[in-house]
Design a protein around this nucleic acid. Structure first.
Length: 425
RNA sequence: GGAGGGGUGACCGAGUGGUCGAAGGUGGCGGUCUUGAAAACCGUUGAGCGAAAGCUCCGGGGGUUCGAAUCCCUCCCCCUCCGCCA
């Protein structure tokens, strides 16, 4: 949700943002509804008159008088109000709906572009590994080692699931603990273990609803499986007015994430890259507007620290206006090199939203003790997606004999295991 | 799942048809006192929309009424007891 005052004050700024995003959002309709809505507010005059008369009636009755004439006048007013209100309600409903669907306005420094072709690499770290043997993709490595079972998972659930077994399960669990410990102990985040299901209000708060319902799994009871820990974390202070002293709040959570991936068939579909259920350690911050840029920078570096500790080569890309999701104001993706697949794969996505989500969640803060409440700014980023990290480790640390070395930083979390070997026959 | 009790401002908590946007307290802010602070005392302090007048908001929605925080219906949430269960 954006500031509705912008509709009147800077419509061209919104229009430009929509153009840059290649969005087909009907801004003219929204502006028209806003004007209509404001016109229809004249019903407030009638309400004022009605309130006034009701007060008088009360006074007359208390004084023992006859208020029938006034009652008749109020009745007439009520009829008049009743004919005007439905139109106002209808206009307001459509207005609210469109306000829930309008994309965020990208920051000025976001590169303008059409598609992922126009994203800009702003940083690269590490040397992509060279192998003197044919590097395998992670699914082949995992299956040969008996630690990733895609067929078994298909029997249990269906396509786009995986079962981690033995060292494969340990590896993912080790990554979760390693990432959480690092963010909590070294980077100063507060650990959170939230619900993995959320209600429609929360999904609306993060802007997954109403527009992206098709991406979500929904239960018969009306709950949604969370597509990311961003959903529970961003809704932790729904409806609250925080004190300035409460900010910033830095949260970090491990959760399973569930996505329908409708329409993603065929694309990056092999292995652990695109699954209905994946696992992720997420960082999320509530901050004041002045600190947002700085806080995002730190958040990205916190994610990069994990990749560096695991010695996985990566690059940081600034997403362009056409490739960015509709909610963020700015997004940076971290992509890790997959020597087996021979591609860079997104392993973290770090975004700031400005007040876009805070408006939906109604999460505010008081800049000073007596000041008017302002919306907080929110941001989040994966730190990291653990499934894709498993894949990256398998591909980057594979050895000619088919075994996989365990990164140094992870060994304490793997019971000291230095290398993953196939099970004994 | 069954029975009962509740949801009020940043927080706690009063309020069962009008004078209630809401007592009282806590917290915040300002002041008196003090070298300073604490304590005490005095004052002040909800949010949204609107240029303003004003309108809206006492969990959400609907209804009764001239008038609803207060009455009725419905949904959601919380608590207690029972049942079930990791």
């Amino acid at each position: 949700m954006i500031d509705r005052n912008l509709l009147r004050e800077e419509p061209e700024k919104i229009r430009e943002a929509l153009n840059n995003r290649r969005s087909d959002f009907d801004l003219d309709r929204l502006i028209e509804l806003d004007e209509k809505r404001r016109e229809l507010l004249e019903v407030e005059q009638l309400r004022a008159r009605r309130n006034q008369l009701s007060q008088q009636i009360g006074q007359i009755i208390r004084d023992g008088g006859d208020a029938e004439a006034l009652k008749a006048e109020v009745a007439a007013l009520k009829d008049q109000i009743a004919t005007m209100e439905p139109e106002l309600e209808q206009v307001e409903a459509e207005f609210e709906q469109m306000m829930l669907e309008i994309p965020n306005i990208p920051l000025a420094e976001v590169p303008v572009g059409e598609s992922e072709e126009d994203n800009v690499v702003v940083k690269a770290w590490g040397e992509p590994r060279q192998f003197d043997f044919d590097a395998l993709p992670h699914w082949e490595i995992g299956e040969k080692l008996g630690i990733l079972d895609f067929e078994g998972a298909a029997r249990i659930a269906g396509a786009r699931f995986v079962t981690n077994i033995a060292a494969g399960a340990t590896l993912e669990r080790a990554l979760i603990n390693f990432m959480l410990d690092t963010h909590i102990r070294k980077h100063g985040y507060t650990e959170v273990f939230p619900p993995f299901l959320a209600n429609a209000t929360s999904l609306t708060g993060t802007a997954n609803l109403p527009k992206f319902e098709d991406d979500l799994f929904k239960t018969l009871d009306g709950y949604y499986l969370i597509p990311t820990a961003e959903v529970p974390l961003t809704n932790m202070h729904q409806g609250e007015i925080l004190a300035a002293a409460d900010l910033p709040k830095h949260y970090c959570a491990y959760t399973a994430c569930f996505r329908r991936e409708a329409g993603a068939a065929g694309r990056e579909s092999r292995g652990m890259i695109r699954l209905h259920q994946f696992h992720k350690v997420e960082m999320m911050k509530f901050v004041t507007p002045e600190t947002a840029a700085d806080e995002l920078q730190k958040l990205i570096e916190n994610a990069e620290a994990i990749l560096e500790m695991l010695d996985l080569p990566y690059r940081r890309g600034a997403l362009c206006t056409g490739d960015m999701g509709s909610q963020p104001r700015q997004t940076f993706d971290l992509e890790v090199w997959m020597p087996g697949m021979q591609i860079w794969t997104e392993i973290s996505s770090c975004s700031q939203y400005g007040d876009y989500q805070a408006r939906r969640c109604n999460t505010r803060y008081r800049p000073a003790p007596e000041a008017k409440p302002e919306f907080v700014h929110t941001m989040n980023g994966s730190g990291l997606a653990t499934g894709r990290t498993v894949a990256a480790i398998l591909e980057n640390y594979q050895q000619p004999d088919g075994t996989v070395e365990v990164p140094e930083a992870l060994r304490p979390y793997m019971g000291g295991m230095p290398v993953i070997v196939p099970p004994l026959p």
